[in-house]
Amino acid sequence: MATADDFKLIRDIHSTGGRRQVFGSREQKPFEDLVDLGWLKRSSVDSRATHYQITERGTSAAL
């Protein structure tokens, strides 16, 4: 179930172009929650960072 923080984060991601790069596993937790909701997808993972991209469902949630 989505929380107020989830909606705040997806709106922030949407307003800044729909993509986010995250460093460190602790910082990934809120983004992984949005992946579980179907609002974000992991577009790539490298040794230092994970890249996320907003989905259509995420765009709808952000509006």
Rank of each mutant, 00 (worst) to 15 (best):
H51M: 15
A61K: 04
R11I: 13
K41E: 15
E32R: 08
R20N: 03
T59V: 14
G58D: 01
F23C: 09
Q21M: 14
V35K: 02
W39S: 00
L63E: 08
L9I: 04
D12R: 08
R20V: 15
I10D: 00
D5I: 07
H51F: 12
D12Q: 11
R42A: 09
F7P: 01
S43Q: 13
G18V: 02
V45T: 10
E27M: 09
T59F: 06
W39V: 00
K8P: 02
D46H: 08
D12A: 10
V35P: 00
G58H: 00
G17S: 06
V22N: 03
R11Q: 10
T59C: 09
E56P: 12
T50W: 08
S15R: 13
R48T: 14
L9P: 00
L63S: 06
K41S: 13
L40F: 00
I54E: 03
L34W: 00
D12H: 09
G18W: 02
F31D: 01
G38K: 05
H14L: 13
S25E: 15
S43Y: 13
F23E: 12
V45A: 10
R11T: 06
L40M: 04
R26I: 15
K29D: 05
K8A: 13
D33W: 12
D46L: 06
F23M: 12
H14K: 05
D36H: 13
G17E: 05
A49K: 08
F23P: 08
V22I: 08
A62L: 04
R26M: 15
A2H: 05
V45Q: 11
K41A: 12
A49C: 12
K29N: 05
R48W: 12
Q53A: 10
R20E: 03
S15L: 13
F31A: 02
A4E: 13
G24R: 08
R57W: 11
D12W: 10
L9T: 03
D12Y: 08
D6S: 08
E32I: 07
V22F: 03
Q21W: 15
S44E: 12
F7A: 03
D6I: 06
D12P: 00
K41P: 01
S60T: 13
R42T: 07
M1W: 12
T59K: 11
Q53C: 09
A4I: 12
K8G: 06
A62E: 01
K41G: 06
W39C: 02
P30L: 06
G58R: 00
T55D: 02
S44D: 09
L40R: 00
T50D: 03
E32V: 06
A4Y: 10
F23A: 12
V22Q: 03
E27S: 09
I54Q: 02
G24Q: 08
L63H: 08
F31S: 01
F31E: 02
S25V: 13
A2R: 04
R11K: 11
T59Q: 09
G58P: 00
R19G: 09
D6A: 11
V22E: 03
S25Y: 11
S15N: 14
L40A: 02
S60F: 14
I54H: 01
T16P: 01
K41V: 15
V35N: 02
F31G: 00
V35C: 08
R57T: 12
L9R: 04
Q28T: 09
R11A: 09
T50F: 09
W39R: 00
R26N: 13
D12S: 12
G17T: 04
Q28P: 05
T59S: 08
F23H: 11
H14T: 03
G18Y: 02
S44P: 08
D6V: 05
L40I: 06
I10V: 06
E27A: 14
S47Q: 12
D5C: 11
I54C: 03
S43F: 14
H51K: 08
A62R: 02
A2Y: 06
S60Y: 13
D6W: 06
R11W: 13
I10M: 03
S15W: 09
A61C: 06
E27L: 11
R19N: 11
F7C: 06
L34Y: 01
K29F: 04
R19Q: 13
Y52W: 03
R48N: 15
R57A: 14
S60W: 13
G38P: 00
R26S: 14
E32Q: 10
S47L: 11
F31N: 01
K29H: 05
R19A: 11
S60C: 11
W39H: 00
V45C: 10
D6L: 10
G58V: 01
S15D: 12
A61H: 04
Y52V: 01
G38E: 04
